[in-house]
């Protein structure tokens, strides 16, 4: 079935609500409006206001009450309206949701999914375009995934809801309206990286909003005779290190591309893992292409901030020439 990434999420939520009476959807404006991105469109009409819950504007409350609901046996799927709005819930996510299972010696499991529209590229105002995955990937006790295609949006979300782990689920908002195939089943487990495009000269390691950018870069590089591989990490915690080591072990060259600022970003974690695991296979240092260490800029500057095809190719050229 061909559908948009947004619609693929909607059908995943619909399926989860339909098949498991314990699944709840909750967040600001998720009911009648269907969410500001319409991902929850029609769900309240089909499943009622007790299962598709319009909440007060209180992010800590959304996650905190989801924790309580999960302790009662429910499986809440929370929507945080925008990436930059998640920080009021940081205590509930980092100190409560992530740690409760360990704190209780496994007595409590909290199958809570927190969906976060993430990253820029839509010309938004401040706090609406951030790529904040590193905060969550740094926190033990959370699973962090990023969907880049309708297939992964649908099946990763269904897997996340079925999982007993707390999952931070990132949706690249600039890709909500892109179309793609959704298969009848998942083709990968939640933690696995995906080789989106095979190639022998260099591996682009990326996720979320930058997958499409990297594919475009690979297509452009092909015209210049370079055969680039593109790997979508999909799982940002835990990272599928074996897959990355396998890929870069073959090509010997890697560039990590993400939208988040490079300092403390997950690109550094990926580069360090590759250095530890396959240093003797590397033909060049692993380069990082990411956002600058500045607050996400005003919309008219975001094309300078976000890695684009040319910045990726610039890093590719330097890495191939090393």
């Amino acid at each position: 079935m061909t559908t948009t990434l947004s619609r693929a999420l909607t059908t995943a939520l619909h399926h989860a609500l339909e098949t498991d009476p314990k699944v709840l959807v909750m967040g600001q404006d998720v009911g009648g409006l269907g969410g500001v991105f319409r991902v929850t469109d029609g769900l309240q009409k089909d499943f009622g206001p007790d299962r598709v819950i319009d909440t007060p504007i209180a992010e800590a409350g959304i996650v905190g009450t989801a924790i309580g609901l999960a302790q009662r046996g429910y499986r809440p799927v929370c929507e945080i309206q925008f990436d930059g709005f998640v920080y009021p819930a940081f205590n509930q996510i980092v100190s409560q949701l992530a740690k409760m299972h360990a704190r209780t010696g496994g007595a409590i499991t909290l199958p809570v999914v927190i969906r976060i529209p993430v990253s820029g590229g839509i010309g938004a105002v401040e706090h609406h375009s951030e790529s904040n995955e590193a905060y969550f990937a740094h926190t033990a006790g959370l699973r962090v995934v990023a969907a880049a295609t309708p297939q992964d949006a649908h099946w990763l979300l269904r897997q996340a809801i079925e999982s007993d782990d707390p999952v931070i689920f990132f949706e690249p908002k600039c890709r909500y309206w892109s179309k793609g195939e959704v298969a009848d089943g998942p083709d990968l487990p939640m933690h696995a990286a995906r080789t989106v495009r095979p190639g022998g000269d260099l591996t682009l390691l990326t996720w979320g909003s930058m997958v499409e950018t990297c594919l475009a870069a690979a297509a452009a590089a092909e015209e210049e005779g370079h055969d680039l591989e593109v790997v979508d990490l999909r799982s940002l915690a835990p990272i599928d290190v074996e897959a990355l080591v396998g890929a870069v072990g073959r090509t010997g060259r890697a560039v990590v591309v993400h939208e988040a600022p490079v300092t403390g970003g997950l690109g550094g974690e990926v580069a360090a893992s590759l250095a530890e695991r396959c240093f003797d296979r590397l033909e060049a240092p692993v380069r990082r292409v990411g956002g600058f260490d500045v607050p996400y800029p005003a919309a008219r500057l975001e094309s300078h901030y976000r890695p684009d095809l040319d910045r990726v190719l610039d890093a590719v050229d330097r890495t191939l020439a090393y």
């Binding site: 007790d50 800590a60 409350g61 996650v63 905190g64 009450t65 989801a66 924790i67 309580g68 609901l69 999960a70 302790q71 009662r72 046996g73 429910y74 205590n91 509930q92 100190s95 409560q96």
Partner: peptide
């Protein structure tokens, strides 16, 4: 933090 957990749990009781 536990006060929000209590409210969420109570929402489960309601349901």
């Amino acid at each position: 933090a536990q006060l929000l957990h209590a409210v969420g749990y109570a929402m489960g009781v309601q349901r």
